[in-house]
Design a protein around this nucleic acid. Structure first.
Length: 850
RNA sequence: GGGCGAUUAGCUCAGGGGGAGAGCGCUUCCUUGACGCGGAAGAGGUCAGUGGUUCGAAUCCACUAUCGCCCACCA
């Protein structure tokens, strides 16, 4: 403890928990519809219940909290609504792995009911973790309103939405190729398939002619086709060649036999075939390839599905039935080889789809699924994005999203998983299907499938506010103000919220979308648990404090992804320390009386500077320019307020300085509070503020505080001071000096900070002449410094000469004078003028010495 | 195969038509009424390359190189 009675250093560990509890106790984050206020609402992108806070959450949390706290301080009725997502496939995978590890059982061993129960319990245990972590970050969410996608009310919203879309004919059942994960035994969406380059093989498969005429293209008795998945030949229904491929014209219409299963298939002509790939002959497997499905359809061919749900070969696979797909691949290749039907085998690098959640290789698989007709839903969303009804930061993502929506495919929303919202369709005894929340009656069986987790997430901005009930919350807070998110879920989630919001509310779900950077690992690659390069925000918070981490993240966040650097947390921590020490200074500073007293130019300058900072900072936050905003505020607080005004307060105060000092500092804390809530709150408390800072008003720009005269005066004064300091450092001059400044400066500030006593006409053996902007400082020197001054003057002269030359050349250019904006031209003239006079002065001084 | 973005000081990154910026690191000095997680003064950059537009380009355009990311049903 210092003599001030407050700790010498700020200890975030001792402060943050206490302050968060205080905010909660005082209901500082509670928001309820208030007709006398304007609403401001952000819904938290619901983290997965299974998740732990990662750097992306920390960054997005900092962004949302900053915007919410700012809105709250600006007088809005600001709601930041928290929630968690049940994370269907992700959580199911976690619970399955646990079950296998701990009990050696699969989900089928325990049965659906029991398994879902376990998922429910696991989710309940897990969800408190990430919520606690949000508190550590300082998130000012209204905890009374915590939502969960498996809450009864939310489930009701999901079922309502499904039934409405179903009844409108926008949800239908269809037999199509889907991305099938044999491990999860479920369909997954296109967006959940990761394509990875793998080293595979291209196998030459030979199909003997049925008629045995032996008149293949080159006299052979077979047709060769290249495939990366030989086992799928068991499901072939045709071969196709390009109709324009002259090599194969007489092949069309002939028949070949599929080895092993001995099925005869015909050779067709189809435009789809690329003659330049492989042999120019393509095998058609409609049940296991989306293109083949189309081709098969064009030729009226019945698909043959050879895979079970778990990826093993089914009865259609003849001798290979029961094998896994990998076993079947080897066995088919070996069998072909034995029969002399294996052609060339080439190494082949290609992209193979993997399940986003479990990493299993995806099989395109024909199955009966539920689909959402997206074209109809996308049209209004495209319109809303085109018209600017939704603003996206940065705008390039608005255009990207429109492009994606324009090429949208129907959405497969059914999953053959167990953890999730069960599809509310019931099949009756007579084969009828009814969409209903409850069983329509005796003998009805509910569809076993559940919904894609993103179907429920798509309703998030309004289902969390009470929909389908027409609640007061919904009327007041919807549409929400802003959604902040990582770009990786723009299509998966954001685009769907827009479509669902327009469909069910007739209004966009949010006015603005902020697409934030992705936080990469220190080496610039993506953070991933498997690579072991993740950074845990909680560890950072523990070490640096939540405020430092938040400031560091925002300081570094722009539209570009960035490699996380601990330096930024360091920067944040140094900043907190700097502010803490400023707090101690302000507290200890003589602070008497409240009555207005006469201000000095320095007082008016700092007010003016602060006021401009308020205006620019607020505008930057409004545009989600967080990095710029942080740099601006940091620069003001450190380089203007602390470096200059505090020094002025020490050395050349006015009667009003105590008041202005405190006022501006408190205002700075208010500006910073949305970003660094804990430390600023503590500083305000230490300063004796009676009201919590979280409840203060955000500073407002006031035109009357602009003071150009004071700005110019202090600018010149600071330059003069710096010129003297620079001279002292270079010439190694210590102690007080005498001198004079030509050009108007604040003499008391100059004298005190430069250590120069001003005299009418500086007299002495030698004089130093220092350019300081448009002013000149002259200092009385001792004789021994004379030689050094000559050298210094020569350097200055050549520097100023270059400046003069540059401006002169520019102004000599007739085209420049004619075409450049008047302000630029007059600016150059002024510079030329100032520098010319400066040059004359310097040369005159040099002459005096020589 | 398409699309988007990046390349700026030793490092991590801002900026973005009119005299190159920050933090860290580096050099010199400094316990001056808060702060050494500090203060003062410095060194350090043909803003990837080539062409173009312009009175003027690090900034806009084109191409090239390198590196990322997203999207796509080529066996």
């Amino acid at each position: 403890m210092s003599q001030l009675g407050i700790p010498k250093t700020y200890d975030h560990r001792a402060v943050e928990g206490r302050i968060y509890a205080e905010w909660e106790r005082r209901g500082a984050f509670d928001a309820d519809p208030n007709p006398r206020k304007e609403p401001y609402c952000i819904v938290l992108p619901p983290p997965n219940v299974t998740g732990a806070l990662h750097m992306g959450h920390a960054l997005n949390g900092a962004i949302q909290d900053t915007l919410t706290r700012r809105a709250r301080m600006k007088g809005y009725d600001a709601l930041w609504l928290p929630g968690v997502d049940h994370a269907s496939i992700a959580l199911q995978n976690v619970v399955e792995r646990k079950l296998l590890r701990e009990e050696g059982k699969s989900r089928w061993d325990v049965g659906r009911e029991e398994f879902v129960e376990r998922c429910r319990h696991f989710a309940e245990d897990a969800r408190s973790q990430i919520l606690g972590q949000l508190k550590r970050l300082g998130a000012s969410v209204d905890w009374r309103r915590l939502r969960y996608t498996m809450d009864d009310d939310y489930v009701d919203a999901v079922l309502t939405a499904f039934i409405e879309l179903y009844e409108a004919g926008l949800i239908y059942r269809g037999n199509r190729i889907v991305n099938w994960c044999p491990h999860d035994r479920s369909a997954i969406s296109d967006l959940e398939v990761n394509y990875e380059e793998v080293n595979g093989r291209l196998y030459g498969l030979r199909y003997p002619f049925v008629d045995g005429r032996g008149a293949g293209p080159d006299g052979r008795a077979y047709v060769q086709v290249f495939s990366t998945r030989p086992e799928t030949m068991l499901g072939d229904v045709a071969l196709v060649v390009n109709p324009d491929d002259e090599r194969y014209t007489d092949l069309v219409g002939r028949r070949v036999v599929i080895p092993f299963v001995e099925r005869e298939i015909e050779i067709f002509a189809d435009e789809y075939v690329d003659p330049s790939f492989g042999t120019g002959v393509l095998k058609v497997t409609p049940a296991h390839d989306p293109n083949d499905f189309e081709i098969g359809g064009r030729h009226g061919l019945e698909p043959v599905n050879v895979l079970e749900r778990d990826g093993t070969i089914n009865a259609h696979g003849g001798p290979f039935a029961g094998m896994t797909r990998e076993e079947a691949r080897r066995a088919v290749v070996q069998g072909l080889d034995e029969r002399g039907l294996l052609g060339e085998v080439e190494d082949y690098r290609h992209r193979v789809g993997h399940c986003d959640r479990c990493g299993t290789i995806i099989e395109p698989w024909l199955s009966e699924q539920w689909w959402v007709d997206m074209k109809v839903l996308a049209a209004p969303a495209i319109e809303a994005l085109n018209s600017g009804e939704i603003t996206v930061y940065p705008d390039s993502w608005r255009r990207e999203t429109i492009r994606w929506l324009e090429g949208i495919h129907d959405w497969n929303v059914s999953r053959q998983l167990w953890w999730g919202h069960r599809i509310p369709v019931w099949y009756g005894p007579d084969g009828d299907a009814v969409a209903s929340k409850e069983s329509p009656g005796e003998g009805y069986e509910q569809d076993p499938d559940i919904l894609d987790t993103w179907f429920s997430s798509g309703l998030w901005p309004f289902a969390t506010l009470g929909w389908p009930k027409e609640t007061e919350d919904l009327a007041y807070f919807y549409p929400t103000s802003l959604l902040s998110t990582a770009r990786e879920i723009m299509y998966l989630w954001v685009a769907r919220m827009i479509m669902m919001g327009l469909r069910f509310r007739g209004e966009v779900p949010f006015e603005k979308v902020n697409v934030h950077s992705i936080v990469l690992a220190e080496d610039g690659t993506k953070m991933s648990k498997s690579k072991g390069n993740t950074i845990d925000p909680l560890v950072l918070i523990e070490e640096y404090g939540a405020d430092a981490v938040r400031f560091g993240l925002l300081y570094q966040s722009s539209t570009q992804d960035f490699a996380y650097s601990y330096e930024r947390a360091d920067l944040g921590r140094s900043f907190v320390t700097k502010l803490w020490n400023a707090t101690r200074f302000v507290l200890a500073y003589d602070n008497e009386g409240e009555e207005p007293r006469e201000t000095s130019p320095a007082d008016r300058w700092i007010l003016s500077e602060f006021n401009r900072t308020v205006r620019d900072y607020d505008a930057l936050l409004e545009e989600c320019e967080f990095s710029e905003a942080m740099r601006l505020l940091y620069g003001f607080a450190w380089n203007q307020f602390a470096d200059w005004y505090i020094e002025i307060a020490k050395a050349a105060p006015s009667p009003a300085t105590p008041r202005i000092l405190r006022e501006v500092f408190l205002g700075t804390l208010e500006l910073l509070h949305p970003v660094m809530p804990f430390a600023t709150e503590e500083m305000a408390r230490v300063l004796g503020e009676r009201e919590l800072l979280v409840r203060h008003s955000f500073p407002r720009y006031e035109a009357s505080l602009e003071d150009e005269g004071a700005d110019r005066l202090l600018d010149r004064t600071k330059r003069a001071v710096s010129a003297v300091r620079s001279f002292r450092a270079e010439s190694k001059v210590e102690g007080d000096l005498e001198g004079r400044v030509s050009g108007e400066v604040d003499l008391s500030v100059f004298g005190a900070l430069a250590g120069v006593k001003t005299v009418e006409s500086p007299d002495g053996a030698a004089k130093a002449t220092l350019p300081a902007g448009d002013a000149v400082v002259e200092l009385v020197l001792s004789e021994e410094l004379r030689r050094g001054e000559i050298e210094r003057l020569r350097k200055e002269i050549s520097r100023v000469e270059r400046e003069v030359e540059r401006a002169r050349a520019k102004l000599a250019n007739e085209k420049f004078v004619a075409k450049a904006p008047a302000a630029i031209v007059s600016g150059e003239r002024e510079k030329l003028d100032v520098n010319t006079r400066m040059l004359e002065t310097l040369i005159r001084r040099l002459d005096e010495y020589l």
